[in-house]
Design a binder for these strands. Structure first.
Lengths: 224, 224
DNA sequence: AGAATGCTTCGATGGAGACCTAACTATGCG
DNA sequence: CGCATAGTTAGGTCTCCATCGAAGCATTCT
């Protein structure tokens, strides 16, 4: 009988299908209301509410009350990372070795991970930013390079603010198995991509699909 | 109701206290028998056996039968990584914000992760090996440098063999939050450390404590 | 104020699964 | 061969918890 952090408690929170569906939905990054999550999980509203209490108590979620709406979101990047790790194992181990459909292909190319971009495009982007010394990488620690401020402000992203959350952070990509960029900068870049309409979110999926024009623009800015 | 990899299934496997204890014990890296795991989990042998079947079916464990002994081990580094990720969240979220005791301190300095060394020492080692170009690091991909073969064979480690498992692999360290070295090379180095008696495993813990002499030797070889 | 919406709490029900004892199979030893 | 050890299977009990309908709060709209 071993002591230590209560890993079973955390895992069992994720271990219920309804809760897992909710967490999965929240991996999309946008905070959702209880009713949306109930729909997502395929359970009634009271059931969902009960699950959400448990996830809150377990510290996996954050709650933002706005008027009569209550928005639930993932508690942080660490939680998102854990979900991706579990997803990775489930993928590898899953008996559903079916041929990956088109949506799976799109997921591999680009998808949302919590609040930033993941997938091949995201990994390529980080590689390129590091190669150009816009970002400086030292293992899993990523810092801004000397030209970062001017480079990002030129495209309308301010990297000056110092929030609690780190600006840059490496996040292991479960499909590519290499890191992509997380942190506030990663989130800002995803914002940029979506607000410029370079790409759009696939409905009911974490996949992100670039338009032909958007892909060119993205590559010009980030993969040049 | 969302489709995809069955993350709830995997998580619920880890979500039972008995199974979590077993997996935790296996994070020590050595494969254990059913009875040892039963003891570790604090359940009867039949109960343990039932749990082990489920873990096997879930693909989290591998089984090596030797005579009347059946040795269970973690299925691979990916599974170990998942456990560490969950442990990280449990640590961060856990209500047990007690002041870290001496054992926790030791864990932070050096511990076993599945079959290789983790903790501050391990992170420092990887940094140094990369800085000396003995290993070449490109994101989470690590390759052998030109001088690797001669350097490691000089200390009795053969990096020539080409097993299925990669020789080098980055594994995210949950205490330091940066990568340390996994893969067959990481395993071989841990073997070396233990067989040379530079350090010993703490009883009933994943902590690894260096002897004064061993620490010097380790630093001379790997942190020079 | 009254109605409508969003969500939580209550109470009851049902099913899944964790657990143990006991019986059974398999391997090794003398 | 016969006993001992390691492990799995079978059968049965019991607890936990996911679920839903109905009722209760809270906030906003009219």
């Amino acid at each position: 009988m071993r002591e230590g952090p209560d890993i079973a408690r955390i895992a069992s929170l994720v271990g219920d299908p309804a809760r897992a569906n909710m967490l999965n939905a929240l991996m999309g990054g946008t905070a959702l209301t209880a009713s949306e999550l109930a729909l997502e999980a395929g359970v009634s509203l009271p059931t969902a509410s009960s699950h959400l209490s448990k996830l809150m108590e377990g510290g996996l979620l954050t709650l933002a009350s706005q008027g009569r709406h209550r928005y639930y979101g993932l508690a942080g990047p660490q939680v998102a990372g854990m979900i991706e790790a579990i997803t990775g194992v489930a993928e590898a181990v899953g008996p559903k070795r079916v041929r990956p459909g088109p949506r799976d292909g799109a997921m591999r190319v680009a998808r949302v991970c919590y609040d930033h971009l993941a997938g091949e495009q995201a990994v390529a982007m980080l590689d390129r930013l590091v190669a150009r010394d816009i970002l400086l990488r030292d293992d899993n620690e990523i810092r801004l390079g000397p030209s970062a401020a001017s480079h990002f402000s030129a495209i309308g992203i301010d990297v000056g603010a110092k929030p609690r959350r780190p600006v840059c952070r490496a996040c292991l990509d479960w499909s590519v198995r290499r890191s992509h960029l997380a942190g506030t900068l990663g989130a800002a870049i995803l914002d940029k991509i979506l607000s410029e309409k370079w790409a759009r979110r696939e409905k009911d999926s974490r996949a992100v699909v670039f338009s032909p024009v958007g892909k060119v623009a993205f590559e010009r800015v980030f993969l040049a």
